Simulated scan of single mutants.
Amino acid sequence: MALRYKTRRRLSLLILVVGLPLYIVAAVTLADWLSARYGRLPILAEVAVYVGLGFLWALPFRFVFRGVGKADPDERPD
C-alpha cells in the first residue's frame, strides 16, 4: 500500500518530533547500560556504537522520508 504525499509528510514529522527523541533516549540508555555492565568502551568503539545506532533508526523509515522534501507530485499545477 503506497502512502499519499501528505500522509508521508505528516508521518515523517511525527517520527522526527516524537520518535527520534524517544530513540535517542533509548540509545543513550543502551550505551550507558553497556558501560555499566562491561566498563567504559574505548572511545573509537563508543563512537562506532553511536554512529551505528544513528544509522539504524532511519532504516525502517526510508520509505516514509523518500521524496518528502520535493514538491507534491499529486498536486495539480495551476
Rank of each mutant, 00 (worst) to 15 (best):
A2T: 10
A2F: 02
L3R: 06
L3N: 02
R4S: 14
R4L: 03
Y5P: 04
K6M: 10
K6R: 13
K6C: 03
K6W: 03
T7D: 13
T7K: 02
T7Q: 13
R8M: 01
R9Q: 14
R9C: 12
R10K: 08
L11C: 06
L11F: 06
L11E: 02
S12W: 01
S12A: 15
S12C: 07
L13T: 12
L14K: 07
I15V: 14
I15M: 06
I15D: 01
L16A: 15
V17E: 06
V18G: 00
V18F: 09
G19W: 05
G19E: 05
G19V: 07
G19T: 08
G19S: 05
L20T: 07
L20S: 02
L20W: 07
P21I: 05
L22Q: 08
L22Y: 04
Y23K: 02
Y23C: 05
Y23V: 02
I24S: 06
I24G: 07
I24A: 15
V25P: 00
V25R: 05
A26E: 03
A26I: 02
A26L: 13
A27Q: 04
T29K: 07
T29R: 11
T29A: 15
L30K: 00
L30F: 14
L30H: 06
A31L: 12
A31D: 10
D32K: 00
D32E: 11
W33P: 00
W33F: 12
W33M: 08
L34T: 03
L34D: 00
S35W: 05
A36T: 10
R37N: 04
R37E: 09
Y38P: 00
Y38V: 05
G39Q: 06
G39M: 08
G39R: 09
R40W: 07
R40E: 15
L41N: 02
L41E: 12
L41F: 11
L41H: 08
I43F: 12
I43M: 13
I43V: 15
L44A: 14
A45T: 14
V47L: 13
V47T: 14
V47S: 09
A48V: 12
A48R: 10
A48I: 13
Y50G: 09
G52V: 09
G52T: 09
G52E: 05
G52C: 08
L53T: 03
G54R: 04
G54S: 14
F55Y: 11
F55N: 06
F55G: 15
F55H: 05
L56E: 08
L56F: 14
L56Y: 12
L56I: 03
W57S: 03
W57L: 07
A58L: 15
A58W: 15
L59N: 00
L59H: 00
L59D: 00
P60H: 10
P60D: 08
P60I: 08
F61L: 09
F61N: 05
R62W: 10
R62Q: 12
F63P: 00
F63V: 08
F63H: 12
F63A: 13
V64C: 01
F65N: 02
F65Q: 04
F65P: 04
R66Y: 06
R66K: 14
G67A: 07
G67C: 07
V68Y: 01
V68R: 03
G69H: 01
G69A: 05
K70F: 07
K70R: 15
A71D: 10
D72N: 15
P73N: 12
P73S: 11
P73H: 11
P73Y: 10
P73D: 10
P73I: 11
D74W: 10
P77Y: 09
P77V: 12
P77T: 09
D78C: 01
D78P: 15
D78K: 10
